[in-house]
Simulated assay, not measured.
Amino acid sequence: MTPTSRPVAYFCLGLSMALVGSYVALSKPLAAIFPVMLLAWLRFGIGGIAMLGWVRRPANEPPLSRQTRLLLFFESFFGNFLFTLCMITGVTLTSAVTAGVTMAAIPAAVAVMSWLFLREAVSRRTWAAIFLAVLGISLNALNKSAEATASATGSQAWLGQLLLVAAVLCEASYAVIGKKLTASVSPKRITALINLWGFALSTPAGLYLAWQFDFAQVSGPQWGLLLFYALAACVWTVWLWMTGLRTVPASQAGIFTVLLPISAALTGMLALGERISGMQLLAFGIALASVLIATWPERLQDKR
Rank of each mutant, 00 (worst) to 15 (best):
S186C: 10
L207N: 00
A210N: 02
I190G: 03
G198E: 13
Y208H: 09
Y208S: 05
A183F: 14
A205C: 06
T203L: 05
K188S: 12
S184A: 10
A200I: 11
A183Q: 15
F199Q: 12
T182E: 11
A200S: 07
K188N: 14
V185W: 08
W197K: 12
K188W: 09
L201F: 13
A200E: 07
L193E: 11
A210D: 00
W197E: 04
T182G: 06
W197D: 07
T182I: 15
T182V: 15
L196T: 03
K188I: 00
L207T: 02
N195W: 05
A192W: 07
T191F: 02
I194H: 13
L209V: 01
I190C: 00
L181E: 03
I190K: 04
A200M: 09
A210F: 01
L196F: 15
A192E: 10
I190P: 00
G206D: 02
T182Y: 12
L201N: 04
G198P: 02
A205W: 13
L181W: 04
L181G: 02
R189I: 05
L201E: 05
A205G: 04
Y208A: 03
T203A: 03
L201C: 12
W197I: 03
G198H: 07
F199G: 01
R189H: 09
N195V: 11
R189L: 02
V185R: 05
T191E: 01
A183P: 15
R189P: 11
S202W: 01
V185P: 13
P187C: 09
S184Q: 10
A183C: 14
A205H: 05
A183V: 14
A192F: 04
T191Y: 06
A200Q: 06
L201Q: 10
S186N: 13
L209S: 02
V185H: 09
L207R: 00
A205T: 07
L193M: 12
L196M: 15
L193G: 09
I194P: 11
F199I: 15
P204M: 06
T182S: 07
W197V: 11
L181R: 03
L181I: 00
A192G: 14
G206F: 00
R189M: 03
A210P: 05
Y208Q: 06
G198A: 09
